[in-house]
Nucleic acid binder design. Structure first.
Lengths: 336, 336
DNA sequence: CTGAAAGCGCTTACAG
DNA sequence: CTGAAAGCGCTTACAG
C-alpha cells in the first residue's frame, strides 16, 4: 500500500507536508499543495485510518448492537436513522448481532471495545426490557426500543400508552361504546402500556371498562398448536351478547387476519366494523381495503433521536417517549 | 486508556511478554502467563485494534454497501447472512448506505478504503443492474442481488426464471389452462426472467402463450395517479371472454390485494381461483387465508453464499443463481 | 511556509 | 522462555 512517504517522495516534499495537505492545514503554499494533491491522485493514495486512529486516539466508530433488528420488517429503520445521523457527524457504524449465546455476545462486545468505539447503541426489534452488559457503562451508550430497570442509561422507546389512547379515542369519537381490544401477549411491554391507554380513552369518553372486551390474540411465541389466536379472540368477542362495533388490534398482522375472519360473520371492516391497529407495516396497512388506520412505530425517529443524543454529548439519562403518529386511513371511519 | 506497557508494569514483565500472552504464544511459562492474565483482568486491559491493524496490515473489516436493504422487509437478511459468515471468519462488517448523491457515495467509499477493508459487498434490496464504482475493483468484491454487464465480479442473484417456471408449473399441474400473470413493472429484471419462466412452464404443459393473460400490476414507482394497478389488471383479466382460473402474482403484495379484489367478482382464492406468487413476505403470506403459496426470495442464502465466496478466497467471477424455494401453502390448491 | 524528532500501541524478527 | 530494537503510518508539538 502506498503511504504518506511515497507521496512525499513523489511530490518532492517532506512527508510532513503531505500530512498537512490531507488535513487541510491552511499553512501550505498553494503551489506545494497542488503538487502534493497531484501526487496523491497519481499514486491513488488513501491515508490509513488505523494510523490516524492511533495518533488521534479516536476511532470514529459507533457500535450498533441489536437482536434481529435488520431482519424484522421496518425495524431496520432504527439502523437507518442511527446511520443517517452518525454519518452527519462523520462517524460510521459497526453493526453486530446480539447473540443469545453468552460467549458470542462477549466476543462481539470485546471486539467493539478493542476497536475503541466512541459510543454504543443497544437496540431491539420490539419494545422490551433488556439485560444491559456491564461493558455498556464504560463508553457513552444509549438504549433504543428497549429499557432496563437496573441500569440508568439514556433510553428511547415508543410511547405505547399514548398510542393505545389514540387508537381507542379515534373509535370513541365516532360514537362507539363497545370497543374490543385484541391484545398482544399480555406480558409484553407494549401490550400493558397500550391497554392502559385504551382504558384512559374509555374513561375519558365516559365508557366503563369491560374485561370481556379484552381478548388475547397470540400465544407464547412459537407454541404449536396455539391456544390463543386472532381466530379464537374474534370468536370470543362475537359470542358476546353485546358484540363490539369497533376493534383495536394489537398489531397490523392481527388486523389483517381480522379483515378476513370477520367476513365469516358477514362483517366487513369499514362497514359494520370500525378498526384501528398498531405498527403501520407498509406491506400490510395500505394494501388492505379499506386502508388500515394504525399507530406507526417510530423506528426511524428513535434511531435518529438516540444517535443525536449520543453524538450531541448529552449526559442526561432520562427516558424519552417517542410519539407513535396515527396514520389515518379508512378502517376506523364507521360512525355509530 | 491502559496499554500493553501498563499491563507489563503491573505484572512485572516486559511488554513483549504481554504481547505473547494476548496472542496465545505457547512459548510462555504457565506461571508468567497467569500473572499477566491476572494483570489484564485487574486493569481491564483490551488490546487496541488500531495498533494491531497497523502492524498486521489488515483490518478484519468487510464493507457492506447497500441501498435500502436494511429497511426493506426481509432484505435485511442479506445483511444477516453476510454477517453470520463474516463472524465465523472473525471479520466484522462496516455497513454504509449507498446514497444516490454521488458525493456522499464517494465519501462512503473513501471511508471504507481508508479503513482498509479486506473486501466489499455491494447489495441491493431488489434484483437489478447496478453501476459498479471503480473502487470495487481495488479490493475483493462481490455483488449480491444485483449485477453489472460492464464489470466482471462474482455475482449472487435469485433464480427468477426458475421461480417463474415453478410458480406456473404448480398451476399447470392442477389442470389449469388459462393462467393469468399479474406482472411487476415489465422493465424490472425479475419481471422479465419470471415471464420467461412462465412461458417455459406453459410450453412444457402444451399450453399456448396468450398475451392477453399477461397484465401489468404496477406503475412506475411513486407515480400518482397510477395507470396500472392490481385493480386495473384484474379488471382486464375478468373482462376476458375466457377468464383465467389461476393467477401468478408478481409479488405477495399483489396477491394480497388480489385476495380482496377478487371478492368483488364473487371469486375466492383457493376456491374459484388458484393463485401463486413471489417473495414469501412472512408478514403477508402465512396471514392470508388460505395461506399463500409463493416462491421465497433467498435473501439469507444470498448473503451467506456471497460472504463465503469472498472470505473463501475464491477467484472465479461467475454468476450464481440462488434458488427461490417454493413455499407451498394452500392458495394454489384448486383443481381444474 | 516547511522539516526533523518523538510517539501512538502494538508485532516481527533477532538475540540471549 | 524472555527481552531490546525497529517499524507499521500517521500527527503533535517544536524549530527554523
Amino acid at each position: 500500500m502506498v503511504s504518506i512517504k511515497d507521496v512525499a517522495k513523489h511530490a518532492g516534499t517532506s512527508f510532513k507536508t503531505v500530512s498537512r495537505v490531507i488535513n487541510n492545514d491552511p499553512a501550505v503554499r498553494e503551489e506545494t499543495r497542488d503538487k502534493v494533491l497531484r501526487s496523491i491522485e497519481a499514486l491513488n493514495y488513501r491515508p490509513n485510518s488505523a494510523a490516524r486512529m492511533m495518533r488521534n486516539q479516536k476511532s470514529g466508530v459507533i457500535g450498533f448492537i441489536s437482536d434481529d433488528v435488520v431482519t424484522r420488517p421496518y425495524a431496520g429503520e432504527l439502523l437507518l436513522g442511527a446511520q443517517e445521523v452518525a454519518s452527519e457527524h462523520d462517524k460510521v457504524l459497526m453493526v453486530v448481532n446480539m447473540e443469545h449465546d453468552r460467549r458470542h455476545r462477549q466476543q462481539a462486545l470485546d471486539m467493539l471495545l478493542e476497536r475503541r468505539v466512541e459510543g454504543l447503541v443497544l437496540a431491539t426489534y420490539y419494545h422490551r426490557e433488556v439485560e444491559v452488559p456491564a461493558e455498556l457503562l464504560s463508553v457513552p451508550s444509549v438504549l433504543v426500543n428497549c429499557y432496563s430497570h437496573r441500569v440508568q442509561l439514556p433510553t428511547f422507546v415508543p410511547d405505547d400508552e399514548r398510542a393505545g389512547y389514540e387508537a381507542t379515542r379515534l373509535l370513541v369519537e365516532r360514537g362507539h361504546r363497545r370497543i374490543g381490544l385484541i391484545s398482544l401477549h399480555p406480558e409484553v411491554t407494549a401490550a400493558k402500556l397500550r391497554l392502559s391507554g385504551y382504558r384512559r380513552a374509555l374513561e375519558e369518553g365516559g365508557l366503563a371498562f369491560d374485561s370481556e372486551l379484552v381478548v388475547r390474540g397470540e400465544d407464547v411465541f412459537g407454541k404449536e398448536p396455539a391456544a390463543y389466536s386472532v381466530e379464537t379472540a374474534l370468536a370470543q368477542l362475537m359470542a358476546l351478547s353485546s358484540r363490539p362495533t369497533a376493534l383495536v388490534c394489537g398489531k397490523d398482522e392481527f388486523a389483517m387476519q381480522a379483515y378476513f375472519l370477520l367476513l365469516r360473520y358477514g362483517i366487513r371492516v369499514g362497514q359494520e366494523m370500525a378498526l384501528t391497529s398498531f405498527d403501520n407495516q407498509r406491506l400490510i396497512a395500505p394494501n388492505l381495503s379499506p386502508g388500515l388506520t394504525t399507530m406507526a412505530l417510530p423506528h426511524l425517529e428513535m434511531g435518529r433521536a438516540a444517535m443525536r443524543h449520543l453524538l450531541g454529548g448529552e449526559t442526561d439519562n432520562s427516558t424519552r417517549l417517542i410519539p407513535m403518529p396515527p396514520i389515518v386511513r379508512e378502517s376506523h371511519r364507521v360512525d355509530r
